[in-house]
Design a protein around this nucleic acid. Sequence first.
RNA 1: GGCCCGGUGGCGGAAUGGUAGACGCGCUUGAUUCAAAAUCAAGUAUCUUCGGGUGUGCGAGUUCAAGUCUCGCCCGGGCCACCA
Length: 928
Amino acid sequence: MAYQALEIEKKWQKFWTENGTYKVEVDTSRPKFYILDMFPYPSGAGLHVGHPLGYIASDIYARYKRLFGFNVLHPMGYDAFGLPAEQYAIQTGQHPAITTKNNIARYREQLDKIGFSFDWTREVRTCEPDYYKWTQWAFIQMFNHFYDKKTDKALPIEGLISHFSTKGSVDVQAATDFEGDFSSEQWQAMSELEREDILQQFRLAYRADITVNWCPALGTVLANDEVKEGLSVRGGHPVEQKMMKQWCLRVSAYTERLLKGLDNLNWSDSLKEMQRNWIGRSEGAEVQFDVKGSNESFEIFTTRPDTIFGVTFMVLAPESDYVSKVTTTEQKAAVEQYLNEVSKRSERERLADVKKVTGVFTGSYCIHPFSGKEIPIWIGDYVLGGYGTGAIMAVPAHDSRDYAFAKHFDLPIVQVVEGGDISKESFDAKDGIMMNSDLLDGLSVKDAIAKMLETVKSKNLGRHKVNFRLRDATFSRQRYWGEPFPIYYKDGIAVPLKEEELPLELPEVDAFLPTEDGDPPLGRAKNWHNRDGLPFELSTMPGFAGSSAYYLRYMDPRNDKALVSKEANEYWQDVDLYVGGAEHATGHLIYSRFWNMFLFDTGFVCKEEPFKKLINQGMIQGRSNFVYRVKNSNQFVSLGLKDQYDVQEIHVDVNIVSNDFLDIEAFKAWRPDFKDAEFIFEEVEEEGKSIQKYRCGYAVEKMSKSLYNVVNPDLIVGKYGADTLRLYEMFLGPLEQSKPWNTNGIEGVYRFLIKLWRLFQDANDEWIMIDDEATKEELKVLHTCIKKVKEDMENFSFNTSVSAFMICVNDLSKLKCHKKSILGPLVVLLSPFAPHICEELYQRLGYQGSVSDATYPELNESYLVESSHTYPISFNGKTRFTMDLDINASKDDIEKVVLSDERVQKQIEGKTIKKLIIIPKKIVNIVC
RNA sequence: GGCCCGGUGGCGGAAUGGUAGACGCGCUUGAUUCAAAAUCAAGUAUCUUCGGGUGUGCGAGUUCAAGUCUCGCCCGGGCCACCA
């Protein structure tokens, strides 16, 4: 019987489902291992071959760990709230819940064909009320906590309230925007609204007027990581800055811990670096500058306090509060005109021409705190309102942006660090010796920074300050398809629902668009208020809300009393291996860590960090094909001849191209306008004959429907089976590397499976399994494979383990080995990669049950030892010849044999041997 | 502009500082076949006077020995970016 992939796969997938093979429970008698994939957003386009890459890798590792007796939690679910379903709903009127449900069904069908060992009984969907109940619950917890800097953790807000009412604001060290002081009497005299205004500035989930990224096309605000180069990540629409009252999460309270925690995580360096950059810690000083002729003063932030004597002007951000305070009457008109211009420029435009210098003089001057000189105060849009204090001291000699500004407005440039050529460009280097700097002269930059910090502190002019780039996360979206906030408003005060009132279910609306008053879609819902008629919040939560704690829910997905029970959490602890794309580095992976740290602080989970080890699978790119149409004609010219014509390059569906040769008939049928296409072929040698063929061009691009380069995994599975797809995706190259999909090589791994199958059959295709004892040679083949595969598995080097299997099967074929004692372990070894065929062969060998209940074969290195080995003999590092030597011999014996060899004597004749290097099993090097 | 990753045959890619190119694709030759497909066997970096020489983007360095380590360039990819 030949290898029938589809039949076998259907049979075993059914077996796994019926027997609940991959269902897991808490089992304290066994060690746990939690392997997680980033759950997908079920888009309408379905899966392409790139999507399952990470899932296959994690599935292989999960199956591998099971063979070692681990109780492996390996769940899957769907990140089901989100913009695309809602955009589709706006266009078609189809309810997003229905679209989402259909898409999920399609995803599930595609995933099932690949033979994953997910425990589907633990599936979660973020859009289901019994799931988002716990997203809402976590939000309320954050609302009811503040961050205490003394104990460095989140504490209940009640504690803060009682502190305020007994001691006032004295002695409070918390992560807050609140500035000012009040006594307990003042607190008690405040109205409820006034108190809540203050408390909002402490809560970890709070509402505030902030500058947000507003996307008019999507009708919603977006978080920083949802905006790239002034455009929305979803849809690529322009984004503008706008002041709005929004719900936020005080992520900034956790910056230090988010940063420090990275040191102990087993993540790739590049990913950790991305997070560090995004958090953007920078150490410097806040220094106060007095405004001349007034009582006003303002603070600036700088990382280079050493250059303070090089300050020749100050710059305020256009949105800075000080702008109005320092603008003189003479300059008022000019400043207003400038502010008006700036506000009209979109974020996109501002970023597009960063080289364009704009600014205006306020008319006021600062007094330099050391030299006493007058320094003009300017306004410039290269200073950002949201970072530091929104004001800078400009040192044009040592900062390229200040330099450009100074050159443009003809402001003085004073060099204070030796080096560079200030007449041409600024000298930004952080080393050198100070000059023109009074008390700092002669010091190195490093020492000068330290000394200036000290001086500034002692003179009460400023203080040491650490700034972060990471801001609080904007948490509301003016959208329909998301979690409703469990919040209602009473006299303008936000009040959370009680836990027993959750979930607050998403209401029905008559359209998925804003109301006529400009309220979010939830403004259309009928009876969108609580029992007392108090109105609910109209915005919904962002996409990252539901994905921030889903890994915890998998531990205990049907629990309606808690997000996760203590028992389940203490058993499963945290994710041992997380596999997913690097694109979530600054979004999901920051929010999840924040969310988890908060739950850790409040005692709901036992681990501070959620993801111990993380692997980013590389993207599988598409390999697009092109045809070349001669301009203004219906003629298509083959790749080799295209340079002789004036042609237009057109993407052609890769599914009608094979080895870059176009299927002419399929092409004509592909699109109506190609029905009457004519072709200019080129000559191609084939089996000695030259024939006419159409050769296509190719390029490696993103896999996308619009480029006609999408390869559907269903097609591959239909033709070769899931085991071949799994092996081939791993064989393509290193997991973490991006690589183009190319179906051309797939025959190789398919042939490998056929060869494996044949090891179980005789010349007449009859099943044959021999109980004879294995020879030493056969054992060596097997154990070489065990050794290599085990090493590779621990390094996630799946491509080389596939190679090891190929070598093993090839060698066993040559040895005509049909022995159970060899094939049994081999099948177990291979089962993580190709589970279906291995289940079948395991059964054919006479074993009962699933191969996933087997034990990983033990490695016996003694089979690998050879008595002789071919050594390269090299002279001064150059190899001259090889020699077979006994590897069990001592170094001295090898040396004796080598030196007595005629060829060696010829080489070293007349020279003295300086050194003799013998590395057992590797090399003999003679240095003359 | 800053940071990170990479550059090896016709292609995808292997190589704890120790025989560069494992494994697969493709290609060549042979066996089998009426023929083809499939399968099996042999070969496949390059030059060569058949001794060997030269080869891992470029140039230097460390070492008995460098694809691998160090420094400086060039090229490609990713991330961040008027973040003071």
